[in-house]
Amino acid sequence: MHQFELQRVINNELQVTRYHDYAPNGLQVQGRSEVKKIVTGVTACQLLLDKAVEFNADAVLVHHGYFWKNEPQTITGIKYHRMKTLLKHDINLYSYHLPLDGHPVLGNNVLLGQMLDIAVDKREDITDLLFKGTLHNPLTALEFKQKLEQKLHNGQTSVLFCGDNAPAVINRVAWCSGGGQDFIESAAQQGVDAFFTGEVSERTIHIAREYGINFYAAGHHATERCGIKKLGEWLSEHYELEIIFVDIDNPA
């Protein structure tokens, strides 16, 4: 598949024009024109790029790419080494951020809901990244913590949890993958029993306590692993592309 045709296919499926994002979605770094083998991963870190070189991949497809708002515009330091790797080996870099959080089938958030046995509420706007739903089977606050740890970390990592003044049993849940901790106040105001995301800020715990809502920080990487993997699977099912998912572990 031609590199720009691949961009068109993914852009169309993820409806990228509907999102106001913090970085460009689509082809960020141009490489060889024909794409047959793609390495997918959460973040275009050096380790992932090295794996792409090892696999002789034509492209890297990630959730977290480059050229974020407010980042330095100069190509120096680790950005220089990453760009040098891509350009030297003629590898395309594609990145999809918010469109891969909000997609109703391939997105991080809907997949998290499925993984955690949550009946996801219907959304009117796919750009609304605060997801809500109802547990198929109510759980205690600690049982839900254990479920997050098992589903997202294979029971190997402890999820940060604050349940002060919060319901002991969870029925209604809200969530946003990645760095969505500032959605907690909106979630609490909508009457859910719990809110989970990837990251936590100091203020988040105070908000959780004062609203009386269970809060879980399950890891930015862990909550955004499923979307890019699913997108790769979708591409391999619909097009003659070899997809290799590489999970570069990150406890954050």
Rank of each mutant, 00 (worst) to 15 (best):
D128K: 02
P251Y: 03
Q15I: 04
V120S: 01
I243Q: 02
I170Q: 04
V173K: 02
R209F: 02
F195V: 02
L112S: 06
F215Y: 15
T43I: 05
L61K: 03
D249V: 03
K229G: 02
I213H: 05
S186Q: 15
L93A: 13
P167L: 13
I213Q: 09
D21T: 06
Q190R: 10
I10L: 06
R209I: 11
I207M: 10
G178P: 03
R172K: 15
L129H: 00
Q146Y: 04
E54I: 05
G219D: 12
T157D: 11
E54L: 14
G102K: 06
F215I: 08
C176V: 14
T85R: 13
V9H: 08
A166R: 00
Y22C: 12
Q73R: 12
L130K: 04
A208F: 07
T43F: 08
H220P: 02
S201T: 06
Y96K: 05
I205S: 03
D121Y: 07
K122H: 08
L148W: 06
L106T: 00
V35E: 03
A44E: 06
Q190H: 13
Y22I: 14
G107W: 03
E124P: 00
L61I: 04
L111H: 03
A166D: 01
S236N: 02
L106S: 00
A222D: 05
Q7C: 10
A252V: 13
N70Y: 10
H63M: 08
N214S: 14
Y96Q: 06
G191W: 08
E54T: 08
T140V: 05
L130A: 04
D121K: 08
Y211R: 09
S236H: 04
L48A: 12
N171V: 08
N12M: 11
Q15S: 12
M1F: 15
K51G: 07
L130N: 05
V169G: 00
T204V: 08
G77E: 07
N56I: 03
K122I: 07
T204Q: 04
L112A: 10
Y66V: 15
E185H: 01
R172L: 09
H64G: 11
A252C: 04
K145W: 09
D50W: 03
P138Q: 11
R18P: 00
H20Q: 14
N154W: 14
Q7D: 13
H63W: 02
V35W: 03
A187H: 04
E34A: 12
Q114M: 10
T157E: 14
I78Y: 07
D58Y: 07
K51M: 14
D182Q: 14
A57P: 10
V9S: 04
V159R: 01
I248Q: 09
E54A: 14
A168E: 13
A218W: 03
V110G: 03
L27F: 03
S33G: 04
I38E: 04
I170G: 04
F195C: 01
F161A: 11
G77N: 07
Y66K: 05
I243Y: 01
L49A: 13
F215G: 09
V42P: 02
A222R: 00
H2L: 15
G198Q: 11
L152I: 00
K79C: 04
D117H: 12
K147F: 06
D50R: 06
I243L: 07
Q73T: 12
E240Q: 13
K122S: 11
H153R: 01
I184C: 10
F161L: 05
Q73Y: 13
V173S: 02
F144W: 03
P104V: 01
A119Q: 13
Y216Q: 10
Q150N: 12
R18I: 00
E210P: 02
